[in-house]
């Protein structure tokens, strides 16, 4: 009982330490992160040329004007920076090498440890990657003022947690498989496509949009980006912003429960010696 109490009272400093340590550790590799300052503007320029060319022929594509389309790509890229994490990969590595055993004896739950590692990593990414890219968008003339600032903050925060949960859940596959690179890459790819990172989901065929509506992926990029723009529509379904953000929050709860369920089954299979 004492152990539980002291563990609870120690919890905030531990996570603060995890955030701080991850931040410092990643700071040593900031030049790798900074490559986004070069790559993202180029990627955006390509998108700009593609869509400028497309919009020469039609004024709107699936309800988007050229400015809205560019805003979508700008915001979805920022969402991509914010949500990026390597929790799944690191968990798989820990399980496969057996190093995960050290977490079994630490007074901290691995899921929270991993989440706060992401927080530390993304705080650094905010300064190194996001701020310069935001400046680029502003110089490019993209109007970055969100339509509903309050809901935008809430929605992006939820997507931050949800993307972590998806990645972490994918990582638990390592409890069952010896080599997981292929499965991880495939799930990552489908997550990126179905989240709307590469293309607004309402451009996909209508039947496919209906499937996408019921999957958790749209809540990672598409929903926060649409909340930022100020309107939501998918598969012909339109919703007020607070309602879709509420659904996003429910999805986080569902994903958390799914993760804990899979985790409880997987952890029984884990064996490690020494490490």
């Amino acid at each position: 009982m004492d152990g539980i109490v002291s563990r609870r009272s120690d919890t905030p400093p531990i996570f603060k330490a995890v955030i701080s340590a991850t931040y410092k550790e990643n700071l040593a590799y900031r030049s790798q992160m900074a490559i986004s300052i070069f790559t993202q503007p180029i990627y955006f320029l390509v998108q700009y040329f593609i869509w400028q060319s497309v919009f020469k022929i039609s004024d709107t594509v699936s309800g988007f004007t050229l400015d809205q389309m560019l805003l979508y790509f700008a915001i979805s890229s920022l969402s991509g920076f914010l949500n990026w994490d390597s929790a799944g990969t690191e968990l798989q590595d820990l399980i496969q090498t057996g190093k995960f055993i050290t977490f079994q004896i630490r007074p901290v739950s691995h899921i929270y440890y991993s989440f706060f590692q992401k927080v530390g990593n993304r705080i650094l990414a905010f300064w190194v990657e996001m701020v310069p890219v935001i400046f680029f968008y502003i110089l490019f003339g993209i109007d970055l003022i969100p339509a509903k600032p309050f809901w935008t903050v809430i929605s992006f925060s939820i997507s931050f947690v949800l993307s972590f949960l998806v990645s972490y859940t994918v990582g638990t596959i390592a409890f069952w498989l010896v080599k997981t690179d292929g499965v991880r890459r495939s799930i990552l790819l489908f997550t990126q496509i179905f989240s709307g990172l590469f293309l607004p989901l309402n451009l996909f065929p209508k039947g496919f949009q209906k499937i996408l509506f019921y999957l958790p992926f749209q809540f990672i990029t598409y929903v926060p980006t649409r909340v930022y723009i100020g309107s939501y529509e998918l598969a012909g379904i339109t919703m007020p912003i607070p309602q879709i953000v509420f659904l996003q929050a429910i999805m986080v709860v569902i994903m958390f429960l799914v993760n804990r369920f899979i985790w409880s089954m997987g952890i029984k299979r884990f064996t490690g010696v020494g490490s």
């Binding site: 593609i50 060319s53 497309v54 919009f55 020469k56 022929i57 039609s58 594509v61 699936s62 590469f198 293309l199 451009l203 996909f204 065929p205």
Partner: peptide
């Protein structure tokens, strides 16, 4: 796939 989606939405590259 992006190309197909663009063309399926009635748009195109000139």
């Amino acid at each position: 796939v992006i190309t197909l989606i663009i063309y399926n939405n009635g748009a195109s590259f000139p």
